[in-house]
């Protein structure tokens, strides 16, 4: 019987320690033949005291633009993420002050180039409670979980693969799982060992 040559489907749901879905977790699949992610240009806005989006996934070589949409200044910093994993990409400790927006114009903008995989914690010197995350991935198959805690992949090559789940509050790295991807959909459920705090407003 000929094996199907079509790509398999992989659906991963990330749950917290109490079994509830976790949005904004990063799910990375590494097929046996690695596929490098493609660099892109993305924008992370500072809006209503939040980084929007909260978690941004990019490839090495990407340009990340920070744009302040609030009426007041932000002083953005990027530092190595406290989360488990390969640590911060080299050269991505950065900080820049972005002027507030006015009635006539958006606020300050600044670009950061990322070169190596890793996780960067985003913060603000002026507003210590602001948190965001920049995840520089090393696999083309990387997604954030949606509000149901689910990441849906539809183009992962058949064969063996490794599954990694990253979340900023999961400080102890979860062991990677081995997946066998074939014609039938692969459904995985991955529990964190923590209950991430819930955001208000």
């Amino acid at each position: 019987m000929a094996a199907s040559a079509t790509a398999g489907n992989v659906q991963v749901q990330v749950l917290d320690k109490e079994g509830r879905p976790v949005p904004d977790a990063v799910v990375v699949v590494y097929p046996s033949a690695a596929v490098a992610p493609v660099a892109s240009n993305v924008t992370i806005a500072q809006q209503r005291m939040r980084f929007q989006p909260l978690v941004t996934v990019v490839a090495p070589g990407s340009r990340v633009r920070f744009t302040n949409l609030d009426r007041w200044d932000h002083h953005i910093r990027g530092t190595p993420s406290a989360g488990a994993g390969p640590g911060a990409p080299a050269g991505t400790n950065f900080e820049m002050r972005l002027a507030g927006a006015t009635a006539d114009a958006t606020g300050g903008e600044a670009d950061v180039a990322v070169h190596e995989p890793g996780a960067v914690l985003l913060g603000c010197h002026l507003h210590g409670s602001m948190r965001g995350h920049l995840f520089v991935t090393d696999s083309a198959y990387t997604l954030k979980t949606d509000t149901d805690g689910i990441a849906r992949f539809d183009q992962i090559p058949e064969g063996t693969a490794q599954l990694r789940v990253w979340h900023p509050e999961q400080l102890v790295d979860l062991p990677r799982r081995a997946l066998q991807i074939g014609a039938a959909p692969v459904l995985e459920s991955v529990p964190l060992s923590v209950v991430p705090r819930r955001r208000r407003l």
Binding site: M49, R71, W72, R197, R199, R200
Partner: peptide
Amino acid sequence: EGPDMAELHADMD
């Protein structure tokens, strides 16, 4: 001219 108090403290528990 800073953020309003609710926005500023929303994530501070």
